[in-house]
Every structure is written in C-alpha cells, then in structure tokens.
C-alpha cells in the first residue's frame, strides 16, 4: 500500500476542495460541456477495471471484469467524443468571452 490510512483521508479532502474550486467560476454557457467533461474524467475508472480484470481468477470474476471494462471504456470514449463535439462548436464562434462570470 502506498496510500495509507490518514494520508488517503488528506488526499480525499484536498481533492474535494480542488474539485469545488475549479468549478466555482464557470459561466452558465459551459455547464453542459463541463458536466460532460467531468463525466469523461471519471472515465479513469477504466484503469481500475483493467487492474480488477487483470487479477480476476474465476470465470465469474472475469465475466464481471469484462463487462466492467466495456462499460468503463464506453464512459471514457463516449464522454470524450461528446464533450469535444460540443466544445468544438464554441471555438468557431467569435473570440469573445465577455459573457458572464455568473454561475
């Protein structure tokens, strides 16, 4: 174990504040892409499913792991594709972000 007990708790706390802070100034126009983007980021679960399937031993574990990898890959790839599609459209409009720092 590299992350032990209280260290995990500290990481948890700091990551939670980080997440809260980086979103706090997002304008309304980006809410949908951002939700989609954060949806993509938790697609990192793919790494976890790979490891879980990697040390699966019984057929049942392998079956669960296999399904989990499919689902996780869907999360990551799908999340990326739709977010990128949405944000791509924003950059084609005028370079003008005077619109709202309001959340």
């Amino acid at each position: 174990m590299i992350i032990e007990g209280f260290i995990a708790l500290y990481i948890f706390m700091l990551a939670a504040f980080t997440g809260y802070e980086i979103i706090s100034k997002v304008p309304v126009i980006l809410h949908t892409p951002l939700m989609s983007g954060s949806n993509f980021v938790h697609g990192i679960v793919l790494v976890g499913t790979m490891v879980a399937l990697g040390h699966a031993q019984t057929p049942l574990e392998q079956a669960i792991g296999f399904v989990a990898v499919i689902l996780a890959a869907g999360n990551a790839v799908g999340g990326y594709v739709v977010t990128e599609r949405m944000l791509e459209m924003f950059t084609t409009s005028k370079k003008d972000d005077k619109k709202g720092d309001k959340a």
Binding site: I2, A15, V26, H31, L34, S38
Partner: peptide
C-alpha cells in the same frame, strides 16, 4: 475504488469530479 485499489489516479480524478459535480 481508487482507495480500495490503491490507485491515486482513480482517487484524485474521482474525488475531484465528485466535488465538482456536487457543486454543479
């Protein structure tokens, strides 16, 4: 799951999204 698997990438990304998503 990141804590369970001892995987910092999962842990950080997951918690950051969890907090950001809650605010959103």
């Amino acid at each position: 799951k990141g804590i369970v698997l001892d995987n910092p990438a999962l842990m950080i990304a997951g918690i950051v999204v969890g907090a950001a998503g809650t605010l959103l």
